[in-house]
Amino acid sequence: MGETFKANVIDHFNFWVAVVLMMIGLYAMITKNNLIKKLIGMSIFQTAIILFYVSAGVKDGATIPILEHHAAETEQVEAGEHVEGHPVANHEAHAINPDDYSNPLPHVLMLTAIVVGVATLGVALAVTQVIYKNYGTLEEDEILAKIKAAENDG
């Protein structure tokens, strides 16, 4: 149990970090009484998901998903001088190896997720501002008490 568990944690530490962060964010969203603290929890949760995706696209020994195009071109020209008449074979030799570049897809997905995160956070902050204007507090229990009092009056 001990050794396999240790190996599990070391091999998957990125996912462990993501899950622990997610638990922190979820706990804040469920139990915190203050609406701003709930929003902070939501942001932590989003960050956990972003870390999860980006870390899933990591490859050992790979670089960022931007082709080293200038280096590759000059190499091809130089190699082409030596083996003339075999452009196809030459091209094959310098074909792009997917293992050299980390996975671009999670980066793209998380780029858009960050933007959606900013948008949702902005809308949420606007809603909290209106709540504060109408109820004079951001504590959930006080808001509920005020709503109930207003219902009983009406």
Partner: peptide, 17 residues
């Protein structure tokens, strides 16, 4: 977690898709 690919695995389902 045991079913997840290891850190930096170039042939995990996500990376080998």
């Amino acid at each position: 977690m045991d079913d997840f690919p290891n850190w930096g695995d170039a042939h995990s389902p996500a990376n080998a898709s």
